[in-house]
Write a protein that binds this DNA or RNA. Sequence first.
DNA 1: TAGGTGACGGACC
DNA 2: CGGTCCGCCACCT
Length: 132
Amino acid sequence: MGQASFDLRVWDAVSLIPFGQLATYGQIAELIGAYGCARQVGWALRRLPLPSAVPWHRVVNAKGKISMSLSREGSDWMQREMLITEGIPVDLEGVLQLQQHHWRPKLSEGQCLELAPQGASSGRFRSAQDAH
DNA sequence: TAGGTGACGGACC
DNA sequence: CGGTCCGCCACCT
């Protein structure tokens, strides 16, 4: 059950990203109180059924690139198309101008999620180092 | 069951 | 800039 709620929290956070803006995997992890779990955010998005109303395409890696991978079976290229349609230029390597479109969530928005239930606490996510 | 592989990220060179 | 390592942990042999 734990994983399902983690996925929902990720999808909820991603849904907050405004049109035309971008967030990183790590940023989403931090937003839901799972600092350091960027990799799992990627898995949660991988589990998102497509097509979806969740703006999953607005999540890129911290290097300012779309994470390209054959294992994505084309969703990476779809992501590129969707971002371009939103007015965010992306080159053929998946590189984009993260700084110019980076979403800076307002404190109030983040608080809503940080206070959200952390699931039945399977103890899977570090808490000791959350003191970031 | 052990080991390899990532939709990650940060440190370091 | 690029490349390597490492911590992380879900998934898949």
